[in-house]
Amino acid sequence: MPFDPSQIPIVQIVFFVMTACAIGGAIGVVSSPNLFHSALYLVLSLFGVAGYYVLLSAGFLAVVQLMVYVGAIAILILFAIMFARRLMGQGENQNNQQWWLSLPIVMILFAVLVGVVNTVSWPVSGAEPTGDTVMELGHAFLGSYLIPFEVVSILLSVALIGGIFLAREKVEAEEA
């Protein structure tokens, strides 16, 4: 039988590569003894998840994931780790005393979840996303989801104010 190149399961291969990134990165996050390495594994994992979004034809979300998670949250975490180098406790064990207890609990959790999602017959609709999802998202945020959109903006201001308030250097008035 001649080799048929159109049979190469490109999408599946990409899926498995991304899974390797996402899950491998996640395992690295929770198992690395070095906090800085954990954070870099987190980036890897987030990158894999961004790849998932591309496969799921949610390109906008993939870019947002890169921008917000990798570009902001991960960098912020790295920044905090670097800022407080002693936070890392380099070389010492990063797990608390209960870690051996949480391992079986989480295993059971995983087994239950996998069992549930694999037994359900999902009502998969064959439909394709309509039109330009970016455009649709824009309409949603200025239409049905206008209120959540505005609330998010308030929430971000609150987080900004609170973040600055909590993390800023000591102010003279406080010493009094």
């Binding site: 996640a26 929770v30 608390n96 295993m107």
Partner: peptide
Amino acid sequence: VSAALFSIGVYGALSRKNAI
């Protein structure tokens, strides 16, 4: 995959001793 990521995340939150 999502369930795996969820479980790993919960494990991390339960087993790590550092807040970060």
